[in-house]
Design a binder for these strands. Structure first.
Lengths: 193, 193
DNA sequence: ATGATAAAACTAACGTCATTAGTTTTTGAT
DNA sequence: ATCAAAAACTAATGACGTTAGTTTTATCAT
């Protein structure tokens, strides 16, 4: 029933993650992955359905791991001193993940195939956590949607620009991040909803 | 001195832009471009040094066109009623460009080769205009850097998420954009520098 | 122990792409 | 008319993803 258990899915995924994080997501190729696993490229098809599927698995894993990190950063019921504390912890965790796993982060920055429920659910998880991170602002339903969209935009934009070296010298980017978040949250606080 | 003037550089670039904008930047291939120009792929090398160079030309053209649009949106010396008016006009122009030219926009979202002065200059142009858009807030030198980084982050993030369908239903994304910009600018106004 | 089974490796082959080398065609200036 | 050079072409190579078909080998039932 189980002859020749050579590679388990975790090994394959882990190797792919390492390659994506070091060489960049777009440089992850089946040939490279096979080489790292010391097998021939076609043998990979015993473990993964192809390059698109491998990328999808990376996206899924990335979203799961990010969600896990964010959950740890945003305790479900903790009473935080200021409404901004939760959002700030969330932001730091988000950015930290993207810096630590640039390949994994890049993996889920693409439109999922329509009908991919697992991927959609994983993305929804992150979305829910983002909503939670802004809960203490007690926004209305409509405002909350806009606020979350904005919050995601600014976090992703920061991470994206920083990752491509778009800020020139990497000097004080952490201060820039704090400035950005605090400015946005200050604006949120002033909102007369 | 000038035998066989078949294709001029503008035609090649224009065709590449159309392909990138319709099929996506990453789907732009030399084979596809050659097909559109009804020549064979190797003949393209008479006009462009290769795929990386073609992409670089797209990035350059994209930055130039964006800068032109932004310049039109942000009149150099106009006295605007509120400090936010200028930044808002800038934002709308920026987002409009990205929506109209997704391929061209994607072209300059990558780290330029070190030492590419022309590309760096084009990027600097856009950066200067962004700085100008926030000038009316009269920020200090340090704050201005952070403010511009934040502004770019949020604009790019919004455009990026919207482009990949990251907002779910494309409902009221314009309202979300306005909300985002106004929230950030409100936060900027409250800054005690 | 042994042999059947099925997973997982392999080789061979194909199509697509970028790229290079070398050849032919065309056109404008002489 | 001719000549030079630009711009097209064909042919070929190497990387990649993918499929088909074959061989190996670990495990399970006997």
């Amino acid at each position: 029933m189980s002859p020749r258990i050579g590679l388990d899915p975790q090994q394959v995924l882990q190797a792919a993650i390492e390659l994506a994080d070091t060489h960049g997501f777009e440089s992850l190729t089946l040939a490279l992955l096979a080489q790292k696993l010391t097998i021939r490229t076609p043998s990979l098809y015993n473990h993964v359905a192809g390059l698109p599927e491998l990328r999808r698995l990376l996206a899924l894993e990335g979203l799961e791991r990010l969600a896990k990190d964010l959950r740890a950063a945003v305790p479900p019921e903790a009473a935080t001193p200021a409404p901004t504390a939760c959002a700030l912890a969330f932001s730091r965790s988000y950015v930290h993940f993207a810096r630590q796993h640039p390949g994994l982060y890049a993996a889920f920055q693409r439109a999922p195939e329509p009908g991919d429920e697992a991927l959609a659910a994983a993305a929804q998880q992150v979305l829910d956590l983002t909503l939670l991170a802004l809960a203490e602002f007690h926004l209305g339903e409509e405002s909350a949607i806009h606020a979350v969209r904005g919050f995601r935009s600014l976090l992703h934009g920061f991470v994206s620009l920083e990752g491509q070296g778009g800020f020139g010298l990497p000097l004080r980017t952490d201060q820039s991040l704090t400035f950005l978040i605090e400015t946005y949250l200050r604006g949120l606080s002033q909102l007369i909803s």
